[in-house]
């Protein structure tokens, strides 16, 4: 997994609640056996019309947000399908951080497994960030170590994050490798269970 420490970049405002993973990456892009190359499908139905032409006024198609690495989005971002293609597509597009007032659970987990930072702020802070991101200057700084977001005008917001997740994200740790260090505990668990619930081993 990629480490996330600090990010200075353009923030793109997407003021809609309940953006689901079907919208982030529609199903026709799920027929891949690869993790890479999903940027082309990101927000496909927002970015392109039925004939495949770019929709000019969609935020990520506007020249001033070209290269945006932070997305500021409405409440309950990432709800719906469990597809990890959603964070893969965001990252492939260059978005490394999403700021919202809440995230759906599976999407939230998937972010941490890939090094995409989901930042939860208060509703009034989101409103402020959204407004500033819509303005002329939309450069923000996100610092994981200090748990802060600095808005384009210089306002600083702090955010909460689970300490275990923060640590792993900062170091970019491999979760499987870590769990396998507890292989002995898993062996013990399985042998106990083989005795107490033998039908599970049949």
């Amino acid at each position: 997994m990629k480490a996330f420490t600090r990010l200075d970049g353009r923030a793109a405002p997407l003021e809609l609640a309940n953006i689901d993973t079907d919208q982030i990456i529609p199903k026709q892009f799920l027929k891949t056996v690869e993790r890479e190359g999903l940027a082309k499908g990101l927000f496909y139905d927002f970015r392109f019309d039925a004939d495949g032409n770019p929709i000019d006024d969609f935020v990520l198609n506007r020249p001033e947000y070209k290269g945006a690495s932070v997305l500021v989005a409405g409440d309950n971002f990432g709800c719906g399908s469990s597809r990890e293609h959603a964070p893969w597509a965001l990252m492939d597009f260059g978005i490394m951080c999403v700021i919202s007032t809440s995230f759906a659970d599976i999407f939230f987990n998937n972010c941490f497994n890939n090094g995409l930072l989901p930042v939860i702020v208060k509703p009034e802070e989101l409103a402020a960030l959204m407004d500033e991101a819509k303005g002329g200057n939309h450069m923000v700084s996100v610092d994981l170590a200090t748990q802060t977001v600095v808005s384009p005008s210089g306002k600083t917001f702090t955010f909460e994050i689970d300490p275990v997740r923060k640590e792993k994200m900062l170091k970019g740790l491999d979760a499987i490798g870590e769990t396998l260090q507890h292989g002995g505990d898993i062996d013990v668990f399985e042998s106990k269970r083989a005795i107490s619930q033998p039908w599970m081993e049949a």
Binding site: E84, I106, N113
Partner: peptide, 17 residues
Amino acid sequence: GIGTSEVEHVLATQTLR
């Protein structure tokens, strides 16, 4: 439900964090 990284984690370890 879980994501694909977690699918890999479960395949390898039969556990989930």
